[in-house]
């Protein structure tokens, strides 16, 4: 195990990915404990500001996950979310915010193993990238200066 243990925040929807992560647990599939899951009613509820707040509060990586297209509990929440992510990712890229640290995925309630896989690969990726110092520095040090 490497020395650096990243903090990963997962913003997931209640109906698919949260249930999927539950299935990962009940299926006894082991996955990285570095992830902190935050449950939302729908992916459409996941505000992009929450992502920046997570980075500012010390997260090194973020997973955003919800129902597959056409499977949204509220019919269209994930379609709105998808557009928002497409635009948000573009803005982040343009502003130099490291989008390799934000993983978007669709995980259904039946995809327990996919969830474990997403968390593990994200964890490995973030370990390779190291802590997100440049953003953390903004939110801590620069305030005091």
């Amino acid at each position: 195990m490497s020395e650096f243990q990243p903090k990963i925040v997962a913003f997931v929807c209640n109906w698919c990915t949260y249930a999927g992560a539950d299935l990962t647990g009940t299926s006894r599939i082991k996955y990285s404990p570095n992830v902190r899951i935050v449950r939302f009613p729908c992916t459409g509820r996941i505000d992009y500001m929450l992502l920046t707040k997570a980075f500012a509060s010390g997260a090194d990586g973020i997973i955003v996950s919800g129902c597959h297209p056409n499977d949204c509990h509220y019919t269209s929440g994930n379609f709105y979310a998808r557009r928002r992510w497409i635009v948000f990712k573009k803005l982040c890229d343009f502003m130099g915010i490291d989008t390799r640290r934000i993983v978007f995925s669709w995980v259904s309630a039946a995809e327990g193993s996919k969830w474990a896989d997403i968390v593990n690969t994200t964890n490995e990726e973030i370990i390779k990238l190291g802590p997100y110092d440049s953003y953390h520095k903004l939110s801590t040090q620069d305030i005091l200066e």
């Binding site: 379609f79 998808r82 557009r83 995925s105």
Partner: peptide, 29 residues
């Protein structure tokens, strides 16, 4: 991306208040 432009029509749904089921992206796993 969405062929949507503000300020051309008086009745119009702006890009982020709308969606299509075929929106394309290449980053969602």
């Amino acid at each position: 991306e969405f062929d949507s432009e503000a300020g051309l029509n008086s009745v119009f749904t702006s890009a982020l208040s709308a969606y299509t089921v075929v929106d394309k992206e290449n980053f969602i796993k």
